[in-house]
Simulated assay, not measured.
Amino acid sequence: MGVQTNPCLVVLAAYSLILIQANITPVLAHVINQTESPATAAPQAPPPVAPVAPVRSAMQPLQATDLLTADKPCSHGLERQMPYFGMGAPGPSGSAGIPGLPGAGGAQGARGERGDRGEPGLSGFPGSKGDKGDIGAVGPQGLVGLEGLNGTKGVKGEPGRDYTPPSMSAFHVGQSSNLQVTSGSQIISFNAQYINIGDDMSQHTGVFTCRIPGLYYFTYTFRAYSHGSYGLNIDLLVNNVVKSQIYMTAMSKHLMQTQSTIVTLRVGDDVWLKANANTYINGDDEMNVFSGYLINAI
């Protein structure tokens, strides 16, 4: 086990050495001077001994110039009994101490002001191709463009075939006489003929016979006026089958009725008008007419 040193004894020893040196050094210097030049040197009085500082009371507070400071404790309280000395010259600066440990983090500061807008960055790499979008709505129609240049002349075509005008069938007939049907029915004949292309209409019998198969248009118009209990009741027939009709009951004023139809006919089909019972037609060849024509041959 090592020897333990009492710090108070160390302090007392150091203090004794300093005190002895302070009182003996002037005397030794005087003796040496006398010894070196005894013949010529005038006798000199020994230097005065430095007064010993009074011992401070244990209750007297230490000053900033004390040799021993209060922050060096002694178990016996002897630092309060050391003599007073003046402050010496400042010693050399000590070496830098060991850096202290990092302090605890401070509180978050207030949010700073918004900085200036930075310069645009460099363009990035092109991204991958996206999915195809939906078809947009149709935009408004644009303006008519400028007329283009004339094209080059085409190659001469093949000679055409001999032209044969299409066959035609049409008629327009009228009835200028009054017609009254009391009972039963009667085919309406006509005493005026205006058009009869192909001679397919017989105005005396009132029957049209199909010569060219195809699509036909027929129309008929009749006038009636108050005549007792009579009115208009007229049918259009194809091979004795009703295809259209005009029907009007007795009226107290003049009226006109028109009906139209389109039918497909084969060769030999017959078409006519039939007036039924209680029909009275007021004769006028310009008002009571029957017409038909071929629309398209089949």
Rank of each mutant, 00 (worst) to 15 (best):
G2Y: 04
G2F: 04
V3M: 01
V10P: 00
V10D: 07
L12D: 04
A13S: 03
S16K: 04
L19M: 09
I20K: 00
A22I: 01
T40F: 07
A45H: 05
A50V: 01
V52E: 02
P54N: 07
P54Y: 02
Q60A: 14
L62G: 09
Q63T: 15
L68V: 11
D71A: 14
P73R: 08
G77D: 10
G77V: 07
E79K: 02
R80D: 04
M82G: 02
G88V: 03
G91F: 07
G91C: 03
G100V: 03
A104P: 09
G109C: 06
G112E: 13
R117A: 14
G124V: 06
G127M: 02
S128Q: 04
G133P: 05
G142N: 08
G142V: 06
G142W: 07
V155H: 08
G157P: 13
G157Q: 11
E158D: 13
P159G: 02
T164H: 11
H172C: 05
V173D: 08
V173I: 15
G174E: 06
Q180H: 02
T182M: 06
S183L: 12
S185K: 02
Q186F: 08
S189Q: 03
F190K: 04
F190C: 04
F190M: 05
A192S: 14
N196D: 15
D199V: 11
D200K: 12
Q203I: 06
F208I: 00
I212L: 07
I212A: 03
P213D: 06
L215M: 13
Y216A: 02
Y217R: 05
Y220N: 09
F222D: 00
S226F: 11
G228D: 04
Y230V: 02
N233A: 14
N240W: 06
V242E: 07
K243A: 12
A250T: 05
M251D: 01
T258G: 10
L265A: 06
D284V: 05
D285H: 14
E286I: 12
M287V: 12
F290T: 09
L294H: 00
I295G: 09
